[in-house]
């Protein structure tokens, strides 16, 4: 999105600012990438260690949800400014889908 670029007229300030931002962002990228690999490892270990399915399923689901959030915020730039409406639509979609699924597993297919 165009809103991410600094609008400063001074190219030097702009350059310095961008350098700093880029550095920060790179650190976040690497951190979240490491986290994601770590979580994937946990998922594999949980399955291979042969725990009971009742424990493995929720662990896998929670890890998956965390991975999606990391992906959205640190790789697809939702942490940046100007994504409020996108987030609103994303969350309302998630809410509607969640309630629908919840309805099915609780009252429809009791």
């Amino acid at each position: 999105m165009a809103t991410q670029q600094s609008t400063s007229a001074n190219p030097k300030v702009n350059y310095k600012y961008r350098r700093k931002k880029a550095k920060q962002e790179m650190r976040q990228h690497v951190t979240s990438f490491a986290l994601m690999i770590f979580m994937t490892l946990i998922a594999f270990i949980a399955v291979m260690a042969g725990f009971d399915k009742i424990y493995v399923y929720p662990i896998l689901l929670v890890l998956a949800a965390m991975q999606v959030v990391l992906q959205l915020y640190y790789f697809m730039h939702m942490s940046h400014k100007g994504h409020g409406t996108v987030a609103l639509f994303l969350y309302s979609g998630v809410l509607v889908a969640f309630i629908t699924v919840l309805t099915f597993v609780t009252i429809v297919w009791w």
Binding site: V96, T103, I107, V108, W110
Partner: peptide, 21 residues
């Protein structure tokens, strides 16, 4: 608009979803 997503089964009352649903 929001509530519109929470009511679809009222078209299916006689399908046999049960009294709770």
């Amino acid at each position: 608009g929001f509530l519109g997503f929470m009511v679809w089964a009222h078209h299916m009352f006689t399908v046999g979803l049960g009294p709770t649903a």
